Amino acid sequence: MAGTFAQIYIQIVFAVKGRDNLINASWEEELYKYISGIVKNKEQKMLAINGMPDHVHFLIGMKPSCCLSDLVREIKKSSNEFVNEKKYSKFKFQWQEGYGAFSYGHSSLNEVIAYINNQKQHHKKKTFKEEYKQFLEKFNIEYKEEYLFE
Rank of each mutant, 00 (worst) to 15 (best):
E29G: 05
W27E: 01
S78H: 10
Y104Q: 02
D70A: 10
G51Y: 10
K33Q: 13
S79R: 11
N84F: 10
F91A: 12
M52V: 14
D70P: 01
K92V: 11
S69A: 10
I23K: 08
K92Y: 02
L22W: 08
F91E: 14
L59M: 09
Y34P: 03
I23R: 11
S78C: 03
K76I: 05
E97N: 08
F82I: 00
K90W: 01
I113A: 03
E97W: 00
S78V: 01
N41H: 12
F102G: 03
I38D: 09
I49W: 07
I75G: 02
S69E: 14
Y99D: 01
S65F: 07
N21E: 13
V39I: 15
A48Q: 06
N41T: 15
K33C: 02
S78T: 09
I60Q: 01
A48E: 10
P64K: 08
N110H: 07
K63Q: 13
M46P: 08
K45Q: 08
V39L: 08
E97I: 00
M62K: 14
N41G: 14
S36A: 15
Q94V: 05
N41V: 06
H106F: 00
N84W: 09
V112S: 12
G61W: 10
G100A: 10
H106S: 14
K42Y: 14
K33E: 11
H55Q: 06
V83K: 07
Y88G: 00
H106D: 01
K77L: 02
G61I: 10
K77F: 12
S78N: 13
C66P: 02
I23H: 06
I113L: 04
K92E: 14
G98F: 04
Q94F: 02
Q94S: 13
I38R: 01
N84R: 09
N84I: 04
A48T: 04
